[in-house]
Simulated scan of single mutants.
Amino acid sequence: MKLNYVNFGQYRMMLANKRILFSFMYFSITAVLSYLGYLHISELRLIESNLFLDSAPSVFAVPIASYICFGLVKEDKKRTALYCTSGLVIYEYLQILIPKRTFDPMDILFTGVGFILTVSLVLVYEKLSECIWERPKKNA
């Protein structure tokens, strides 16, 4: 029987690849779910218009924008989500100056809810990642 030994460098590379794949899968799935939620709310807005449905897509804009930035920026994910949220709030204020666009304070409120949702999903990711990748400590 031939045993296949892997040196420490190969093991670390394999582990890093698995972590990257896990991160990609987690954030891809949650981004797709956010996008599906956005599409569903958008369809409901065509049927009926009210204050909640008009601003609800802003909740899903933050996770989608943040997940795109997570792939571009190797910083703290919560800080990156805060920057994306700030950008969306600034864009909402800039709509005052853009013709045929309207400023809606409810969009800012729902963007804040989207930030809370994004940070919650990041915390779940960190907890899952910690459970999966941390080695169990041996009792002495």
Rank of each mutant, 00 (worst) to 15 (best):
F24L: 12
M1W: 07
E75A: 13
F22G: 00
V89N: 06
Q10F: 04
I108T: 07
V59F: 06
A65I: 15
Y5M: 06
V119T: 15
P63M: 09
S55D: 00
A16M: 07
I29N: 10
C84W: 06
A65P: 01
Y83K: 13
I20R: 15
D104S: 04
L94N: 08
L15D: 01
Y93E: 00
F103L: 02
R19I: 08
V122Y: 04
L44C: 11
T30H: 05
S28C: 13
F27Y: 12
Y125C: 10
M14Q: 04
F115E: 02
A16F: 10
L33M: 13
M25V: 15
D104T: 01
K100S: 06
L39M: 13
A65T: 12
V32K: 10
V89H: 00
L123T: 12
I96P: 02
V119S: 05
V122F: 01
G87Q: 01
Y125S: 09
I116K: 14
E75W: 11
I108Q: 02
L3R: 12
I41S: 09
S42P: 03
L117T: 14
L3M: 07
V122N: 00
V73W: 03
Q95I: 15
R12I: 10
T85C: 04
L121N: 02
R19D: 01
V62A: 08
I41K: 11
E43A: 09
T118M: 03
A61K: 08
S66L: 07
R101H: 01
D107T: 13
H40P: 05
I47H: 06
G71N: 14
A61S: 10
R101G: 03
I116L: 11
T102C: 09
C84M: 08
L121F: 04
I90T: 13
V62G: 01
S55G: 06
V89T: 04
L15E: 03
